[in-house]
């Protein structure tokens, strides 16, 4: 019997396999295919202060080993979430972590404050890294001062586990990881999508209505892995690894790079059962490698000889 339990701040997860925000709806979309209570947690679709219609279509482009999206935080707002979605989530024996976003600092604070009152939501993931909105989102996550301000402001109104979702669209991940930690985050999750573009050569037009969008899927995995590894060596709070994880081996690589838990994102679209397959594969790996606890894998990377200590690259 292997111990799969992990701790993220005050939060105890039954295992490190979770599903990423925007890639798993509110969980109920997947209950026809799997038992969602087997997951460590489900990160919900982003919640904002007011109803958002999102961006115009087309919002998706298939790219080599990945896809672009420009959904733009479509959701019905925090009050609708509390009134209509939260009661449904409570029916499942699953940890739900709300992904919180906004256009302004006040909006982040308002949403976080309202969700703080929900006893069934033990943590939030602060989305300061969405590349698909004009205001807020990545604007906060790519400037250290605004990142620090929003995290500090939310920290004041939110007393449960606060996870900050970092953007990969920055020069130095260690800088932003430290900023989040210094501002009071209990954990960081990374990476959100990479700002990207697709062009239809025949039509001589951008594929997405918003021209640019966020790249996800296996195409981003090596970039994400490097960033998780850098973040792990920069902070002492837990790191949640995200980026193209499509099978148990991918998940294990992220744990070895330093992740305490992982999120499965785009892969859910291709195989709605992939997250439970990853969980089973992880258990099998632990047995084969004689790990009794999943926490023993985190950061357990044998570095090349002469690579004495970690030196985060700065650009």
């Amino acid at each position: 019997m292997v111990d799969m339990q992990v701790n993220i701040g005050k939060l105890v997860l039954k295992n490190p396999v979770t599903t990423a925000s925007g890639c798993f709806g509110y969980g109920s979309e997947y209950t026809d295919f799997m038992d969602i209570s087997r997951l460590g947690a489900v990160f919900t679709k982003a919640v904002t202060g007011e109803n958002r219609e999102g961006n115009p279509a087309p919002r998706m482009a298939e790219t080599p080993s990945g896809m672009l999206n420009s959904v733009g935080l479509q959701n019905k707002g925090v009050d609708y979430f509390i009134e209509h979605i939260y009661p449904v989530l409570r029916q499942y024996d699953t940890v739900f972590i709300a992904n919180v976003s906004g256009s302004t600092l006040d909006e982040y604070v308002e949403v976080a404050g309202k969700i703080n009152d929900l006893s069934g939501i033990p943590a939030i993931e602060l989305n300061i890294s969405c590349p698909n909105v004009k205001k807020g989102g990545m604007v906060f996550g790519t400037n250290r001062q605004s990142a620090a301000e929003v995290v500090k402001a939310v920290r004041k109104v939110y007393d449960k586990t606060l996870i900050i979702k970092l953007s990969p669209n920055v020069a130095s991940i260690p800088d932003f990881a430290k900023t989040a930690e210094g501002a009071g985050a209990d954990a960081i999750s990374l990476i959100n999508t990479l700002l990207a573009m697709a062009i239809d050569a025949e039509k001589r037009k951008p594929v997405l209505a918003t021209v640019t969008g966020g790249l996800s899927g296996p195409a981003v995995k090596p970039v994400a892995l490097r960033m998780v590894w850098e973040a792990y060596h920069s902070v002492s709070i837990p790191v949640i690894g995200i980026g193209g994880i499509s099978n148990a081996t991918d998940a294990i690589e992220f744990l070895l790079a330093g992740a305490t838990a992982i999120q499965v994102g785009t892969a859910n679209f291709i195989d709605p059962q992939v997250s439970v397959k990853i969980l089973e594969g992880l258990k099998e790996y632990m047995e084969r490698h004689h790990f009794s606890s999943v926490s023993q894998i985190t950061g357990n990377l044998e570095m090349p000889e002469g690579f004495e200590r970690f030196r985060p690259k700065t650009f």
């Binding site: 925007g22 890639c23 798993f24 709806g25 979309e29 997947y30 679709k45 999102g54 961006n55 115009p56 279509a57 087309p58 919002r59 998706m60 896809m67 999206n69 959904v71 479509q74 785009t266 859910n268 679209f269 709605p272």
Partner: peptide, 11 residues
């Protein structure tokens, strides 16, 4: 992408 209402891209 997903076909089941999760990705919200077919708006």
């Amino acid at each position: 992408a997903c076909g089941i209402g999760a990705c919200l891209t077919c708006a």
